[in-house]
């Protein structure tokens, strides 16, 4: 956390809204990214990210400056997303996750590259949909936010050994899902050459 961010946090804790807006501007991307990976579509991710910042704003006075602000913020976002998934039973990818609703990363997107990225996102969501909400949060934090096991344990309120065990189980589930998807592709590719059932 930079000096500037620490200053914004201190000012925001004393009621300076402009400073909190600067924090929203700075952290919108990681929070949105976490929510997107957890919930699987950009509309729900936007809603969850906005709500996470509202909660952070409400409880900012409880924030301990000795802790990492990013970890604290991601903790709020991941708990909110876990609650959403449990409440809405959003364990499967919503049909809202259409390619058109993702805003390209750069100003001038290459349509082919963007399509490729969207296919990858769909594949990832497909792989992740079998994971339990907390396991999914652990995987997202580990792979996309480069969090250590200790940081994940702080973010999700788990012990380090529980995080290890959840990541282990999740990797197994992801590998199994990958193998199943490969098998499905092989079966689909074979079909055009099958002889008609006459």
């Amino acid at each position: 956390m930079s000096e500037q961010e620490a200053l914004w946090i201190r000012r925001a804790q004393h009621g300076d809204d402009k400073s909190f807006e600067n924090l929203v501007e700075t952290y919108q991307r990681p929070v949105f990214s976490l929510c997107y990976r957890m919930l699987g579509n950009s509309n729900d991710a936007e809603d969850a990210a906005q709500e996470s910042f509202i909660r952070a704003y409400r409880y900012l006075k409880r924030y301990d400056p000795d802790r990492s602000f990013a970890t604290w913020l991601l903790s709020i976002a991941s708990h909110y997303c876990i609650d959403c998934m449990r409440r809405r039973r959003l364990l499967t990818v919503s049909t809202d996750a259409l390619p058109a609703d993702i805003i390209p990363d750069h100003g001038t997107p290459d349509p082919e590259k963007e399509l490729h990225n969207q296919e990858k996102r769909a594949l990832i969501q497909d792989l992740m949909k079998g994971l339990k909400p907390i396991d999914r949060a652990a995987v997202v934090l580990r792979y996309w936010h480069d969090c250590s096991e200790v940081e994940i344990s702080e973010t999700l309120g788990l012990t380090v050994s529980a995080v290890k065990s959840r990541l282990y189980r999740s990797r197994k589930a992801l590998a199994d899902a990958w193998l199943s998807s490969e098998n499905a592709i092989v079966v689909n590719e074979r079909r055009p050459y099958e002889s008609p059932a006459l």
Binding site: E21, V24, E25, Q28, R29, P30, F32, S33, Y36, S42, A45, E46, A49, Q50, I102, I103, D105, N117, K120, R121, L123, I124, L127, Y143, W144
Partner: peptide
């Protein structure tokens, strides 16, 4: 696949 996938960004005007 995880490593190659770019992080999605929110629509402009989030703040």
């Amino acid at each position: 696949t995880f490593a190659q996938n770019p992080a999605p960004t929110p629509k402009p005007g989030f703040t």
